[in-house]
Design a protein around this nucleic acid. Sequence first.
DNA 1: CATGGGATTGACT
DNA 2: GTCAATCCCATGC
Length: 200
Amino acid sequence: MNRSFYDRPVLEVAPDLVGCVLHHGATSGVIVETEAYHETEEACHAYVGLTKRTSTLFGPPGVAYVYRSYGIHALLNAVCEPEGVGAAVLIRALEPDSGLELMRARRGLQAERMLCSGPGKLTQALDIELHHNRSDLTSGPIVISQRPPEWRDVEIVADRRIGITRAAELPWRFSAAGSRYLSRPVPRDAAVVPGVARTR
DNA sequence: CATGGGATTGACT
DNA sequence: GTCAATCCCATGC
C-alpha cells in the first residue's frame, strides 16, 4: 500500500484496511477487524496533543504506531491523515494466512481461531514489538498489501469500539461480516458500511 | 520524583 | 462472570 492510501480521513482508511493483508517476515494474515482513532475524540492518544508519546501519531502517514498496553501487550496502528494531524487505525484481528506453525509456536497454542483474534494476540503471533514504532509501512519490515481477489467485495459492518471508556459511543470499529477470527462478535444490529462500486 | 491509568489477555470461580 | 499481571509515559507536586 502506498503512502497516499494512508493520507486520507481515518474513517475512510479504517474500513478500507479490512480485507488487506498484513505481513511481517514469514507470517501474514488478512485484516478482519480495525478501529479508527482521531485527535478530536477523547479515546485517541493524540487527544492530549503533541508529546513524546504521541509524536508518531502526528507524524507522516503510512508509519506504524506501536505502544504497550496494560504493561504487557504491544498494539499496532497505522498512522493516517496528513502530517500534523493525529490519527491512526488500530489493527485488531487477522485471519491467519501464512506462517501458521510459527504463529502457534509464538502464541503457545494450536487453535487457528485463537492465533490473531485480538490486537495483542496478532502482534505476538507476527512478532511485532515496541521497536517497530515509527517503522515505515510502505517499505517494511511490516507491510500491508491490497485485498486479494476473494476479499475484494468483503461486506464490512460498523459498531462501537472495544475496551475504551471515553467516546465509547462512536461506531468506529470495522469488521469483516461473518468472520470467525474477530476479537469479539459483532452485534446483530451493526450497520453495513456502504461499499464503492461493489459488484453483486 | 511519585503516582495513576490504560485501545488486553488468560486463568480462574 | 471476576481479576491480576506489568510497563510506558503524562501529569502534578
